[in-house]
């Protein structure tokens, strides 16, 4: 009996918890030189998406640390670098008696990835873009000849307790301000170190953008409630959606992010939980609102469908006219 139990106990190898390398994707990639995005692009979602570099990483095949590098040439001014890994920072409401209706949509804990952002002068970067991730540590010798390791990473991320050197958790955007006054005309490297790969598909999609000017005021200019919304739809890019490369969950979370960023999260969640033609939340079609989620499949609401709308993630408008 014990013997049989032992055999069954060993039946599960736990492979599901270990990310794998996916053919056709890179574990260490180079995104090339980025052109800083004008702040004018912040004003519209479409223009903002055009300035964002979307990419996808998998587990490196050579047992190396994974990640991506990009660069930009500074003109002596200040830039804001933002990276948003998939999908959405989400705490599902699990209270049966009094659930928070705006967070009732079931979270997928396996679709979130984590990238750690650092930025510095390319001359100080120790990695080899496309082959091996590195860091910005350099040796410094003080006046008594003592060797000190200096981190020249200029991306200062402050934690919740005010400490520098922090990083955000899974699915949470990271952003920092780079003042290039001291090095006009020099190239800066952006290093994104893979901290966690989503287990649902072993692919980590993300969006990266360098925005001209300070990080202050970006949310206001983009008219979004959260940094999560500055880079939209990183889990299912318009191109992927058009090529039908997004699975139902990714589409759902792209839709949920859209709902969250456009302040109609309550309608989305209500419709997702009660996808019925009788539910008023699923039967509105004003602006971009009007969808239904039926068995994990995103569909347009009956009212919208009657008006000739389709659920079209490729233009990030769930109710766009056919």
């Amino acid at each position: 009996m014990l013997f049989l139990l032992t055999i069954f106990a060993c039946g599960h190898a736990g492979d599901d918890y270990v990310p794998k390398s996916v053919e056709g994707y890179e574990g260490v990639s180079v995104l090339g030189e980025l052109t800083p995005m004008s702040r004018d692009n912040l004003l519209s979602t479409t223009a903002r998406q055009e300035g964002v570099t979307y990419a996808t990483l998998t587990l490196p095949r050579e047992q190396l640390f994974g990640g991506a590098t990009a660069s930009f040439v500074a003109d002596g001014s200040t830039y804001c670098v933002v990276v948003d890994p998939e999908a959405v920072t989400w705490n599902q409401s699990v209270d049966f008696e009094a659930p928070s209706e705006t967070y009732i949509f079931k979270d997928n804990t396996s679709d979130d990835g984590d990238l750690d952002l650092s930025v510095g002068l390319s001359a100080n970067y120790t990695g080899t873009p496309g082959y091996q991730m590195g860091n910005f540590e350099q040796a410094y010798e003080d006046s008594l000849g003592a060797q000190v390791t200096v981190n020249t990473n200029e991306c200062v991320l402050v934690g919740s307790l005010g400490q520098v050197g922090a990083h955000a958790g899974r699915a949470t955007p990271e952003f920092c301000e780079i003042d290039t006054t001291l090095h006009p005309g020099r190239e800066y490297t952006i290093a994104l170190d893979t901290w966690s790969l989503p287990l649902d598909d072993d692919l980590l999609s993300f969006g990266l953008v360098v925005i001209e000017g300070s990080c202050e005021g970006i949310q206001d200019q983009a008219n979004v409630p959260d940094w999560e919304c500055v880079i939209p739809a990183e889990s299912c890019t318009p191109e992927e959606a058009a090529a039908d490369n997004c699975n139902a969950r990714e589409s759902s979370f792209a839709a949920m992010e859209l709902a969250y960023c456009n302040q109609f999260q309550h309608l989305f969640c209500d419709c997702a939980i009660n996808p019925s033609a009788d539910n008023p939340s699923c039967n509105t079609c004003e602006g971009t609102v009007g969808f239904a989620l039926v068995e994990d499949q995103l569909t347009v609401s009956p009212v919208c469908a009657a008006d000739g709308y389709v659920a079209d993630l490729s233009v990030l408008n769930l109710c766009s006219a056919d």
Partner: peptide, 18 residues
């Protein structure tokens, strides 16, 4: 105290105390 390299504008160098 003596400061190490200035890495960012408006941020003084670290003194790297022993």
């Amino acid at each position: 105290p003596e400061m190490g390299p200035v890495i960012q504008a408006d941020i003084e160098g670290n003194t790297y105390p022993y």
